[in-house]
Simulated assay, not measured.
Amino acid sequence: MTDPATVIAAGGVVWRDSRGTRQVLLVHRPRYDDWSLPKGKLTANEHVLQGARREIEEETGLQVVLGPPLGVQRYPVRKNGAIVAKLVHYWSATPLDDTDFQPNSEVDEVAWLPVDKARDKLSYPRDVDILNNLDRVIPVASTLILLRHTEAVKRKDWDSKDTSRPLSSTGTGQAERLTAVLGALGADRLISSDAERCVATITPYAASIDRHIHLWPEISERGYDADPDALAGLAEKAWRPGKVTVVCSHRPVLPALARELGLRVGKFSPGAFVVAHRLGDGRLVHERFSAP
Rank of each mutant, 00 (worst) to 15 (best):
K39G: 09
H212R: 15
E106S: 13
R136Q: 14
R197T: 01
W158G: 10
N133P: 05
V64P: 06
L263Q: 02
S168K: 01
L185N: 02
P241W: 06
T2G: 01
H214Y: 01
V107D: 01
L182D: 07
P30Y: 08
G40L: 03
R29M: 15
F101K: 03
L146H: 03
S160W: 13
I209G: 06
S92L: 06
R74A: 14
R155Y: 11
V48F: 09
E58Y: 07
A258D: 04
V65P: 05
L66N: 02
V27L: 12
V137F: 10
Q174D: 15
V7C: 14
V88T: 15
S160G: 14
L279K: 04
R148S: 07
S123V: 08
V13F: 11
T21W: 07
T150G: 12
Y224S: 01
L144A: 02
R165F: 09
D129K: 12
G71C: 10
H214V: 13
E221M: 10
P252L: 11
K41R: 13
G40K: 04
K156H: 10
I56K: 00
L261H: 02
R211E: 13
A141N: 15
G242T: 00
H277P: 12
Y90F: 13
T99F: 00
R31P: 00
T143A: 10
P4N: 05
